[in-house]
């Protein structure tokens, strides 16, 4: 197994201070202010391997290299932002080799965004409204780097890169679907296999599929299904979602009779 590292943690109150200070700052100035160590950081106490400053520096260079390709510090368009994310995600994931449990710490991502790479974080997400707890910069799940890392960790590089942002969110932000890597990958794979060519409608299709899966998961244990079963399930739901999104020509009606009770049963005697 590869050696895994823990990362410096920037306490929440410091992160908020820094966010206020950094918001609106010139990007070149932010690059100058960036550093690989801050005395106010802490570490997961019992980790055998802390990431070395040299490695943090190498990470800085990697991320900055990708940003340069995307014309940093020129402002990013939405499309270019997505393209940048797509390039960054696998590089970030591969290079960090972070203990996954450590990657669940908000403070780790706050450090990355506000100390190590503020020039990139606030370029990607400039916080124009100057929100004090801006979720893209503070290390919450939608943090600029954290969400990319999580995407690759859960979905793998290939699937992670092929999904649109909204699609990834639809899967990953739902614990039922995103928390179990095998299930998450099956959903992404099945969705791309059936709806991959659907263009902009893909997101709507996946939204319907995801809704049905989250409902299904109450009655069916998704993780107990094997890969084939999962693939079939997702494939079917995706097709039905595509159908559902087609313009409706005939309204379906539900015309039930009043029940004639064939059988009732209760597991517990009242």
């Amino acid at each position: 197994m590869n050696r895994l590292y823990v990362y410096p943690r920037l306490p929440a109150h410091v992160a908020e201070q820094l966010l206020t200070l950094h918001t609106g700052r010139d990007l070149v100035e932010l690059r100058r202010l960036s550093t690989t160590a801050d005395a106010r950081t802490t570490w997961y106490p019992t980790a055998p391997h802390r990431v070395a400053e040299d490695d943090l520096r190498a990470l800085q260079q990697t991320v900055r290299g990708i940003a340069t390709e995307a014309n940093w510090p020129a402002p990013l368009s939405k499309t270019n932002g997505t393209a940048f994310d797509r390039l960054l995600a696998p590089a970030l994931y591969r290079q960090m080799t972070i203990v996954p449990a450590d990657a669940a710490s908000e403070e780790v991502w706050s450090f990355l965004s506000l100390v190590l790479l503020p020039d990139i974080a606030l370029w990607r997400w400039p916080n124009p409204l100057r929100r004090p707890g801006y979720e893209r910069i503070i290390g919450r799940p939608r943090n600029v780097f954290r969400r990319l890392w999580t995407r690759v960790h859960s979905l793998g590089e290939d699937l992670g890169a092929r999904l649109y942002e909204d699609e990834a969110v639809a899967i990953l932000e739902r614990p039922t679907l995103g928390a179990h890597p095998r299930v998450a990958r099956a959903i992404a794979h099945g969705h791309l296999a059936v709806a991959g060519e659907a263009g902009a409608a893909r997101t709507d299709i996946l939204r319907i599929t995801a809704r049905r899966l989250r409902r299904l998961a109450v009655v069916v244990s998704l993780e107990s299904l094997d890969d084939t079963q999962l693939a079939q399930l997702v494939g079917r739901y995706t097709k039905e979602a595509i159908d559902q999104l087609r313009p409706v020509t005939t309204a379906s009606t539900y015309n039930h009779q009043f029940p004639t009770q064939v059988q009732t049963r209760s597991g517990v005697s009242p």
Binding site: P100, A101, A104, P175, G178, A179, H180, E223, S224, G267
Partner: peptide
């Protein structure tokens, strides 16, 4: 019997774990 299943029905059991901080889930093989 309670479930209305035949004696031939295959029922599996498994244990799933989920961790709150990492939002990670996995399970034993059924």
């Amino acid at each position: 019997q309670d479930c209305g299943l035949s004696p031939a029905a295959a029922v599996h059991c498994l244990v799933t774990w989920h961790s709150s901080s990492t939002n990670r889930r996995d399970n034993s093989s059924p």
